[in-house]
């Protein structure tokens, strides 16, 4: 059985946000929605202080609280572990948004504007490709682990996590190679081997018991 998952080596992230931008371009996420933001945090005290970065995205949970919370069945977990939002089925209850401990679900609000450089909010051209792409206002969308790339790859004999065209774009884009993707059920996959060698494997909000398939090394 294939179960896609990602491990993020926090120590390797340089905070360049290339994944963040690549994801937005690849998935045309709504103006306010960034499916894969890199969060920053400071650690320590001067002179032993440093800036650390935490790349985030949907954790594609095995026991996904968003799937449980959704009243309309718009969220579902595929057999390969990818959690997808079906905008056609979404009624915009936002129960999934509140239920997700990671902030991985995003409402496409027509009234929203992009946060501009001055902290004010505007309505720039970024909105247009999103509506032009046929996305539905009032619905929720999320990171898909680039399921379209994975599905393209598996249909064409490519290996997700190895072949760039079959791998999530955030993984492919990262110049520091801090994201590793692959089949968690395959002990020889890149992701399994990386975790075995560099572990331990940690997840965000372990108290939430979500069974996240997005995991981290070097978190604590």
């Amino acid at each position: 059985m294939t179960r896609w998952g990602m491990v993020i080596d926090v120590g390797r992230c340089i905070g360049c946000q290339a994944c963040t931008v690549a994801c937005k371009v690849e998935n045309l996420s709504p103006v306010d929605a960034w499916y894969a933001p890199v969060v920053e945090y400071e650690v320590g005290e001067y002179p032993d202080a440093r800036m650390s970065y935490l790349p985030t995205l949907c954790n594609h949970c095995t026991d996904a609280p968003c799937v449980t919370a959704c009243p309309s069945g718009a969220l579902r977990r595929r057999d390969d572990g990818i959690v997808l939002a079906d905008e056609d089925r979404c009624i915009g209850s936002r129960a999934c948004m509140a239920a997700c401990p990671y902030g991985a679900l995003h409402l496409f609000e027509e009234a929203s504007g992009e946060v501009l450089g001055d902290g004010s909010r505007g309505r720039p051209s970024l909105l247009e490709p999103y509506t032009a792409a046929g996305r539905i206002p009032g619905t929720v969308s999320k990171c898909t682990y680039c399921a379209h790339r994975i599905d393209f790859g598996t249909a064409n004999g490519l290996m997700p996590g190895v072949d760039p065209l079959a791998t999530p774009v955030c993984v492919v884009t990262c110049p520091a190679e801090c994201r590793i993707f692959g089949d968690l059920d395959d002990p020889d996959s890149r992701v399994s081997r990386y975790t075995a060698e560099r572990g331990p494997r940690e997840v965000l909000r372990p108290d939430a018991q979500t069974g996240a398939t997005t995991a981290y090394v070097g978190l604590s």
Binding site: W34, G103, E109, A111, R121, G122, R123
Partner: peptide
């Protein structure tokens, strides 16, 4: 440049 208009904050506070 984009015309700056008042718009509500996104409901996703993680943003």
């Amino acid at each position: 440049s984009a015309p700056v208009t008042a718009a509500p904050l996104p409901q996703n506070v993680f943003m």
